[in-house]
Amino acid sequence: MSTAPARLPTEERQAEIVTAALELAKETSPGLITTSDIAAGVGVSQGALFKHFPTKDAIWLAAMGWVRGQLLARLEKAADQAASPMDALAGMFKAHVGFVASHPGVPRFIFHELQRAADSPVKQEVRKLLQAYRKLLRRQLDAAVARGQVSPKVDLEAAATLFVGVVQGLVMQSMLSGNAAAIKGQADAVFAIYRRGIEELA
């Protein structure tokens, strides 16, 4: 009886390959992950893998595209469902933290790529993500100032930078501890400090 994996539509198989690569990144440095490892994670041969992606870099580029789409969708949904701009910022913070907790291989993959000297297509995708993220943040911060929820004295560009930096700090600590889920336990308290800072600037 054949044990060969079922043939899937191209998009579904590509999604499986991306998922397998990010799953491997949870435990292994992305630089050490081989196409053989990824193929094994999916349950296909390397030849089958290369029918969908010509190189390992192409897999990582697709993975970053997936991350950008998924994370931005979660952030936008959290903002759209909020009753006020400040609630939107809190929801976006939780959404980002929740995404990292659910996909701990993602930050390992991104940090690895950012350490590479070359300006790779993956880095360009990361920049696109950050640019879109900052636009979302600025929209909510501007609205929060207009609603009187954020002090008009706040440097909003700095506030957006700090928001992203706080999340990245939590992510780094979770990576060092090896417990991605722990990030959720600190999220509310950390955001509360951030919130007080932008509300009460003298």
Results as ranks from 00 to 15, higher is better:
Glu11Val: 10
Gln168Cys: 09
Ser177His: 10
Arg13Thr: 08
Phe99His: 15
Ala15Pro: 04
Gly105Ser: 01
Val42Cys: 06
Asp142Met: 12
Ala95Arg: 09
Pro104Trp: 06
Leu129Lys: 11
Ala202Met: 09
Arg68Gln: 14
Arg116Ser: 09
Gln70Met: 15
Phe109His: 09
Ala132Asn: 05
Leu176Arg: 11
Gly185Arg: 03
Gly165Ile: 02
Phe163Thr: 07
Gln46Met: 14
Arg7Met: 01
Thr19Gly: 10
Lys26Phe: 09
Ala144Trp: 01
Leu129Arg: 12
Gln124Met: 10
Thr161Gln: 12
Gly43Asp: 10
Arg68Glu: 15
Pro121Gln: 01
Val126Asp: 10
Ser29Thr: 09
Val150Gln: 00
Ala118Leu: 11
Ala189Lys: 10
Met64Arg: 08
Lys128Val: 10
Phe109Asp: 06
Phe191Lys: 02
Ala90Leu: 13
Ser2Met: 11
Arg74Lys: 12
Ala180Gly: 04
Ile59Glu: 12
Val171Ile: 15
Ile183Asp: 10
Leu8Asp: 01
Leu71Ser: 13
Leu49Tyr: 03
Val44Lys: 05
Gly41Cys: 03
Ser177Trp: 06
Ile33His: 01
Gln81Asn: 07
Ile183Thr: 09
Ala180Pro: 05
Pro152Arg: 08
Gly105Ala: 01
Trp66Glu: 13
His96Asn: 14
Leu8Gln: 04
Phe93Arg: 01
Ile59Ser: 05
Ala146Ile: 00
Gln115His: 12
Glu125Pro: 11
Val167Ile: 14
Leu71Pro: 04
Leu61Lys: 11
Ala192Gly: 07
Val106Lys: 00
Glu16Leu: 08
Thr3Met: 11
Pro104Ala: 00
Leu137Phe: 05
Ile33Glu: 00
Lys135Met: 13
Ala79Ile: 00
Arg138Ile: 07
Leu136Lys: 12
Leu114Cys: 08
Leu61His: 10
Ala95Cys: 04
Ala159Asn: 05
Gly65Ser: 05
Arg116Gly: 07
Val44Glu: 06
Lys128Pro: 00
His103Leu: 07
Ala180Met: 01
Gly69Gln: 05
Arg7Asp: 00
Asp119Lys: 10
Val97Phe: 05
Leu72Glu: 02
Ala101His: 02
Ala21Gly: 06
Gln168Ser: 14
Gly47Ala: 15
Val164Ala: 15
Ile193His: 11
Val164Lys: 13
Ser2Asn: 15
Ala144Val: 03
Gln186Tyr: 15
Ala6Thr: 13
Asp142Leu: 13
Phe53Ile: 03
Pro85Arg: 07
Met175Cys: 07
Thr10Phe: 08
Ala160His: 06
Gly47Ser: 14
Ser151Glu: 02
Glu199Arg: 08
Gly185Leu: 03
Leu201Val: 08
Gln168Ile: 10
Thr10Glu: 15
Gly185Met: 02
Leu71Met: 15
Ala159Asp: 03
Val122Glu: 10
Val97Asp: 07
Lys128Ser: 14
Ala78Val: 04
Val100Gly: 06
Asn179Phe: 07
Val97Thr: 04
Ala146Thr: 07
Gln131Tyr: 13
Pro152Met: 06
Glu125Trp: 01
Leu156Phe: 02
His112Asn: 09
Ala39Val: 11
